[in-house]
Simulated assay, not measured.
Amino acid sequence: MTPQELRTFCLSFNDAAEEFPFGPEFSVFKVAGKMFALSSMDAAPLSVNLKCDPDMAVQLRAAHPEIVPGWHMNKRHWNTVTVDAKLPDTMVRELIEDSYDLVVAGLPKAVRLRLDRP
């Protein structure tokens, strides 16, 4: 997955927006003002911080060396995923979607309904 593919996929979700609150080098992807992904698009290797269910986060870290506790994030709820050829793009996309869904699940019901997500 290239940086542009990562950006395009993150922005494909309903109400997703890209912001730069930490400077121009860090893309922060938000839904309804809440972050679901964070990446330095120019970094090599490319990586992305994603929200994750705490139990699933432990399992993913044990199974994949490319997934580690979230860099500069709450390590219980966030993973840093190195986006390279070792992890299938489909898996990276699923992790991004899971992160988006977790953030949406924490939003007020009225916002969730506006996003067409129960």
Rank of each mutant, 00 (worst) to 15 (best):
Met1Ala: 11
Met1Gln: 07
Met1Thr: 08
Gln4Met: 13
Arg7Asp: 15
Phe9Ser: 06
Cys10Gly: 03
Ser12Lys: 11
Asn14Lys: 15
Ala16Cys: 02
Ala16Phe: 03
Ala16His: 01
Ala17Lys: 14
Phe20Leu: 15
Phe20Arg: 11
Phe22Ala: 09
Pro24Ala: 14
Phe26Thr: 14
Ser27Phe: 08
Val31Gly: 07
Ala32Leu: 03
Met35Cys: 04
Phe36Asp: 08
Phe36Leu: 05
Ala37Pro: 02
Leu38Ile: 01
Ser39Ile: 02
Ser39Leu: 00
Ser40Met: 07
Asp42Gln: 10
Ala43Phe: 00
Lys51His: 02
Lys51Asn: 00
Asp55Glu: 13
Met56Val: 13
Ala57Tyr: 06
Ala63Ile: 03
Ala63Pro: 04
Pro65Lys: 13
Ile67Ser: 00
Val68Met: 09
Gly70Met: 05
Gly70Ala: 06
Gly70Gln: 04
Trp71Ala: 03
His72Phe: 10
Met73Thr: 03
Asn74Ser: 09
Lys75Ile: 01
Trp78Ser: 07
Asn79Phe: 08
Asn79Ala: 10
Thr82Pro: 01
Val83Leu: 14
Asp84Ala: 11
Pro88Trp: 11
Pro88Gly: 13
Asp89Thr: 15
Met91Arg: 12
Met91Cys: 00
Val92Thr: 02
Glu94Asp: 13
Leu95Trp: 11
Glu97Asn: 07
Ser99Met: 10
Asp101Lys: 13
Val103Thr: 12
Val104Thr: 13
Gly106Thr: 11
Gly106Phe: 14
Gly106Cys: 14
Pro108Cys: 15
Pro108Leu: 14
Lys109His: 13
Ala110Glu: 15
Arg112Ala: 15
Arg114Met: 03
Asp116Ile: 00
